[in-house]
Design a protein around this nucleic acid. Structure first.
Lengths: 338, 338
DNA sequence: CCTTAAAATGACAACGCTGTCTTATCTCTC
DNA sequence: GAGAGATAAGACAGCGTTGTCATTTTAAGG
């Protein structure tokens, strides 16, 4: 049951273990014939290099860490799917670590991944990527990391991101193009990075269409269903109702739809509703929610790839922009002529 | 920037590296004074043993693998939280791997984790734990694994689980105790393991209360919101409506509530609704959904602990039962006197 | 052909630990 | 206080790779 080693392969191929190593690591200076002989031996024996030995002798661990805090489960799942996909293709493996924001308990865990496991790089997801102390630890150790959609400190390491402002702008533009003028907007949690960007996009699109902003049509929320309900009630109990409501995320948009239902307002006939995130629920409710798809998995995949191929490129890209997508569904229709 | 090794600690403590190793691994035959000297040196230098070296020299990798397929994101997140918690306490780290059921692509990944990474154990989540071929690979390599809530093959390795039948029984009993007699039941996806158990619990509780089962009150669903809607329509369009509906999971229960809403039935006055899973949405809807909490994180934690402490116990437990919890909320009330 | 540089390969020492076996040091006991 | 039997500590050889450097083979040039 003892596993086969590089020595076995070398013996079978009639070369030294170093040559096998060269073939396996795609190093230069190996004759084609030799390479083929080695590869065939590798296949014949179904040889797989030992990760620990590689890590100990070389400089790579073939492990990538993913730090996340406590965002929505769907977000984590997408993130992992993307990161895993990149890892899979490169023979890497993914290590996950939850960073509890509150306590300082995260520190030993982060340090452990760096000092003990010696991961080749770290992907920092949403809230963690903005925690200065975490970045400090990483920079201090000179550990490669990529941040996903950071909220600020854009000069601290490479990052991948999506243009939230532009997405909100485009969605607002879409509503305007359907004739909507009284468009309600529900902002997200004030401490969340995306909140301001999404509002900005909305405001800019409105301004570009010469719509004077009605402050009463902009309500605060906190990204929860409940807060969406509250904001929707404030918006829909006004003497002149908006014909469309654009919520900063899907949960709040669902809250809006619930209120509309309760008030006997037909969506989209009496009220158009748009969300942001394109969460799974968006397609479950009826009518299906028009929303904006965030390329979460793609961002994670890009982040992982930056880390994996870091050694190849002399200059790592500072930032990588990925495209959002407007998911137009039944919850948005033309403005009613009321 | 070169990291400190066991040699540095040994030098500072004035002992051999082997003694340091003994202290770090809690091996016997170290005098208290020596142990303290070593530990203080470890702390002073902030020494952390290199994982790769440990794995290469010893028999442990301090890595646990988590295989999952594609269940709900919330399920994965809970699973990871539990497994991570156990790992954290024992100085282990968690490696995740998605096993795409369809393709055979999973095989090299599973083998890689076993042969290359040499994880100390594998946790198999919901659908993966019932895939015979995966179990074959693990058993073939003699790799320690724990299955979480398997649907069958209970003799293939240790597992942790929850008593779905008892939970459904208790919930049904709860409904009965509130005076409900015409209780509708929505079964889950026929291929899902829990489906039959949950139905059994329902049926047994009804039988125990001398309620002859009305076949028309038992409808098939498939664990989706949509299927819950369909089943609810079939149940609520009957001449004599049920006073309560117990759905095999929350998504379907939400479908029931949607239909009830549309039919102007007040929940819980006109219709009580109970679900299963206690998914996050259960607390978001209004009224909040009475449901059954599955100890997902606890099961994962128990599974990880079994793997981590395997070497300690001579005989690994074959199974570990964890408790569910009835979450009684607003969607269930006493039977109306109609 | 022989010389010389370049390309291909190999020998061997790390990497930082743990396992095994040996040696030194206590603790008893009579 | 000497000998036996623990108990504590150390020496040293791996673990399975990669890095470095030496060596051999091939290709190029006259």
């Amino acid at each position: 049951m003892t596993s086969i080693t590089i020595t076995d392969v070398a013996a079978l191929a009639g070369v030294s273990i170093k040559t096998v190593s060269r073939v396996l690591n795609s190093e230069p200076n190996v004759r084609d014939g030799t390479r083929e002989r080695v590869l065939s031996a590798v296949n014949k024996l179904n040889y797989k290099p030992n990760l620990a030995a590689r890590a100990l002798a070389g400089s790579r661990s073939y492990l990538i860490g993913l730090y996340y805090d406590n965002p929505s489960p769907g977000y984590i799942a997408d993130l992992q799917r993307g990161a895993m996909s990149a890892c899979r293709k490169a023979g890497y493996h993914l290590l996950v670590e939850q960073i509890d924001g509150e306590k300082e308990r995260w520190r030993p865990r982060v340090e452990s991944l760096l000092d003990q496991v010696k991961v080749d790089g770290v992907i920092l997801a949403q809230p963690v990527c903005d925690r200065g102390a975490v970045l400090d630890v990483l920079e201090e150790r000179n550990a490669p990391f990529v941040r996903i959609a950071p909220a600020g400190d854009w000069d601290r390491g490479p990052y991948v991101y999506m243009n939230d402002r532009q997405a909100a702008y485009d969605m607002t533009d879409h509503l305007l193009s359907l004739g909507h003028r009284r468009i309600g907007f529900i902002r997200g949690h004030p401490e969340h990075s995306a909140t301001q960007q999404r509002y900005l996009g909305f405001a800019q699109a409105m301004a570009a269409a010469d719509q004077s902003p009605d402050p009463a049509l902009v309500q605060w929320g906190s990204f929860t269903f409940r807060s969406g309900v509250g904001a929707a009630e404030r918006l829909l109990n006004r003497p002149v109702k908006p014909t469309a409501i654009f919520a900063s995320n899907d949960d709040m948009a669902l809250g809006v739809m619930a209120v509309a239902n309760r008030m006997q307002l037909n969506v989209p006939r009496d009220l158009s509703v748009a969300g942001f995130d394109d969460s799974p629920i968006a397609q479950v409710v009826w009518p299906q929610l028009t929303s904006i798809r965030i390329p979460v998995a793609e961002m994670a995949e890009a982040a992982a790839n930056i880390l994996i191929h870091k050694r190849l490129q002399q200059q790592a890209p500072a930032a990588r922009l990925l495209d959002f997508e407007l998911m137009l569904r039944g919850s948005v229709g033309p403005a009613s002529l009321a």
